[in-house]
Design a binder for these strands. Structure first.
Lengths: 282, 282
DNA sequence: TTTGGACATGAGAAATCCTCATGTTTGGGG
DNA sequence: CCCCAAACATGAGGATTTCTCATGTCCAAA
């Protein structure tokens, strides 16, 4: 009978939209248990019966159905309002892999800003690839093979895996260098090792992301596998050295700029995409 | 850059609607400090400047203005959705003073329910009189003199203050009985004492509400002042006895049924009002 | 009947939110 | 021009709320 919490309302709306607690829990980044608690709390505080069956495959009552529908509308309005505020402010929210962000984009940011001073990039990184519809980003940098349904994708560069290390370590027999791997890319080392005819030993150290593995390599801790495009500048500056310049690894993956088609109607988003394309093609 | 919390959005919307943190804090039942924290958190997580002046009399930026407006709409939609769900369920949410609720309404509830089985009353009590517009109630029982702007008010009964106690205590000199007062009605005892020519001594015990004072009187702890209409049944049953049957107290107050005019279009609300009127007039 | 998937539940941990005490800013009266 | 009062900011710590984990229950399909 007291006022329900917004979290509970949100959980309810999402459960109705997706059709299951499990799905809603994924969207809201919590466990199904949390959703279950929230829904119970909601029924309690509204003193209304929202679900008709209480076991698996819960169905909504007529009242629940209608309420959920209106709530979904309201939450969509909120998301749209926030997105609109960012548009007004000339913001472009970008989701990208941390390796691309730290190794490639951040060093070039000042260059972008001096060219487009009225556009502000808000950069986010996360492990999981984001689903642009429903997430608070105008666009994203993705890694993969393209062909994502419903998304406008522009290729930036094709993957070119190389083995890099601190130049100091070039004397060492490359095969004996500690191997620095990224948890997100368990195939990197096996593929490269196979292509180079090196023994397939397990990595010496595993980092959370490629960016961290490269940083460790720069510090002289061993060798890392990385897309050459991301570290071209560091190699040119002598911060890193290539051990195996062109491992004959066949890869279909690459970095892409992706956005929902309707987001490309925003001038700032197109600006950013075009700038990316220009920068990646030298 | 992370997603803002709903509380923060709500605080922002309310601040914009009311024009000041202080006013918003009153609506949301928190301290101005809480609002301030929430607004800061919101600006942080949106990475947007919402306020233009940061001192007293904060003004919104253009972006903030627009965002706030849309958010207010969304929150209104949510409130409306919940209200609509209750209508569909045939619920009538009633806010009432705890004395009216416990002493008069609750004992008669089964009677209402047997007559209107498809209507469900959801009863709430609170110290502060509720502002029906914006609060989640279809109607309320208020105490006062009527004439509330924008509200449809129907008188239920006129105040008739009497002094009551446990019948066992009738032997005692009434003036010497411990006086049980209600914090919400500090004038009760002084007015009655003056009318009866009793000395005006401070109350022996003060309870949070009239209902509690009456309960204490029933338990034989002393004498309480109460509207006779509320305890007529208890007197008839011998649970309470009147000490001063008709203190010559002039009072303009009484209990009223109040509702926003548009809520009276709901059949269940009219049913409840008409039932109340019938019950109170015998 | 068994098994697996999906939800429920309770206890305790984690995160959020709120308050209190105190500091800062601003507009206006003297 | 200075000082005051009102309104907001801020930080620390505590109070709720929310979430997770471990476990239990229920249903459906094999």
């Amino acid at each position: 009978m007291s006022k329900p919490s917004f979290r509970a309302l949100r959980a309810f709306a999402e459960t109705s939209r997706t059709g299951s607690l499990a799905a809603a829990s994924r969207v809201l980044n919590v466990t199904p248990s949390a959703i279950s608690h929230l829904l119970r709390e909601l029924e309690q505080s509204l003193a209304l019966t929202l679900f008709i069956t209480r076991g698996p495959n819960a169905r909504l009552t007529q009242i629940g159905e209608k309420l959920a529908h209106r709530l979904v509308t309201a939450f969509d309005t909120i998301d749209a309002a926030i997105t609109e505020a960012h548009h007004q402010a000339g913001d472009v929210r970008v989701s990208a892999l941390s390796s691309f962000l730290t190794l490639w984009l951040v060093p070039r940011l000042t260059r972008f800003q001096s060219r487009h001073p009225d556009t502000r990039l808000l950069l986010s990184t996360g492990i999981r690839p984001v689903d642009l519809s429903g997430e608070p980003y105008e666009c994203a940098i993705r890694w993969g093979r393209g062909g994502w349904p419903g998304l406008d994708a522009t290729p930036l560069f094709h993957d070119r895996p190389v083995v890099v290390t601190n130049p100091r370590l070039l004397q060492t027999n490359p095969r004996d260098l500690p191997r620095l791997a990224a948890g997100t890319r368990p195939d990197d080392w096996p593929r490269v090792a196979a292509a180079l005819g090196w023994p397939d030993v397990p990595p010496t150290l595993t980092f959370e992301t490629r960016a961290l593995a490269v940083q460790a390599a720069t510090a002289g801790m061993g060798a890392a596998v990385v897309d050459r495009n991301l570290v071209a500048d560091m190699i040119a500056n002598g911060l890193l050295a290539e051990i195996a310049p062109n491992p004959p690894v066949h890869t279909a993956e690459g970095h892409w700029f992706v956005a929902l088609p309707d987001r490309l109607r925003i001038r700032q988003v197109r600006q950013f995409r075009d700038w990316l394309v220009r920068e990646t093609h030298q």
